[in-house]
Design a protein around this nucleic acid. Structure first.
Lengths: 188, 188
DNA sequence: GGCAACATTTTACAAATGTTAAAAAATCAT
DNA sequence: ATGATTTTTTAACATTTGTAAAATGTTGCC
């Protein structure tokens, strides 16, 4: 089962040796739709790779719940503060469909980072890819109107548009659900 | 001169050996206010650490120039796409004051990443810190109004408020200069 | 000092988005 | 299937933010 991961671009850069070292610590888990696998305000001990399914990260505000990230198969999934600062996180991560994930304990992963140069660089690449994607979203907010953001999201993530509730997509795009509905309506 | 860097938190995690290996490739450079050190649409060959001064990263749009990052001393500074994807960047980086920087060629840095485990993990930490900071800004846009973002920015970055043109701060905060002016006016 | 260039604020108006509430549509569970 | 629940859309109105242009303030330079 875990061997499937080997085909994900994320892992293809690893040598066979490093892949075996890493995968030795990985365990396949499956959860039903609706499961929350990362809780805010907790130090979460696992780093996950989504093998199949859809996930979202969100923050519970006073009057609102803001979704700020979606993951599809191949995505990495972890509590930022737990992973980066070993402190409680701010985000919840919920599975929007039945999902299969591979996970590794952060303590094991951190040991590998201190032992294996390839894996350390693999971890660096993960952070860098997330970084450039996040910065791009921040910049898109400045340059593109809400309608353009929606249409591009729909074009680039057809699976998500089909299967994710619009209220979640609205907050992901940085608008209210009413505004998103207007954008969609303007198309007909 | 370069020894000063050793005190920056960014470098304090490195062992003496790794520090010497890294600093061997680093060169101190100084530029006057107004110098652009990273150009959009170019593959930029250097990774910089800002030793003193203030820098901003911006994108030239059709009608607007959007500043999306500020750096003060200790900040790392590079073309994201050059560094991460070895392809031309989207951002310009300009020095807003006379500045001293230390730089290392990306080719040298990448070699070190492949040779030295500590330096590879140091590079991982850099990306992770930038990542968490960028995500926090994206989330702040959703939860905080423009006025709150301004007041918090002013509180956390007193140097920048003092020395950076408000038009740059406005786009950094995600509002027009007129709106920023209204926010500031509302305080008196 | 005084002019020129640039930065900031102000004003009036326009456009986009938010808020609240209700209706319509879709989905879920028994 | 059908009633209950949730999601999405629609409507009316309020608010925020944007745009353009003029007024004011600031900075640097000769």
């Amino acid at each position: 089962m875990i061997e499937q991961l080997r085909d994900i671009p994320l892992f293809s850069a690893l040598s066979n040796d490093s892949w075996h070292e890493l995968s030795h610590y990985m365990v396949l888990v499956q959860y039903p739709k609706g499961t929350t696998i990362i809780y805010a305000d907790k130090v979460e001990p696992y780093f996950y790779i989504l093998q199949s399914g859809i996930a979202r990260a969100y923050i519970d505000g006073e009057n609102q719940q803001i979704t700020f990230w979606f993951g599809e198969s191949g995505a990495v999934l972890f509590s930022f503060n737990s992973y980066i600062n070993n402190s409680p996180g701010y985000e919840n991560i919920e599975l929007l469909t039945n999902s299969a994930l591979t996970r590794i304990k952060l303590t094991d992963l951190f040991l590998l980072y201190q032992q294996n140069l390839e894996i350390a660089n693999w971890g660096r690449k993960i952070a860098e890819q997330e970084l450039i994607a996040t910065e791009r979203r921040l910049i898109d907010r400045a340059f593109k109107g809400a309608a353009a953001r929606y249409h591009e999201f729909a074009a680039q993530s057809p699976e998500l548009i089909k299967r994710v509730a619009l209220k979640h997509i609205a907050s992901y795009l940085g608008v209210t659900q009413v505004t998103l509905s207007r954008i969609r309506g303007a198309y007909k």
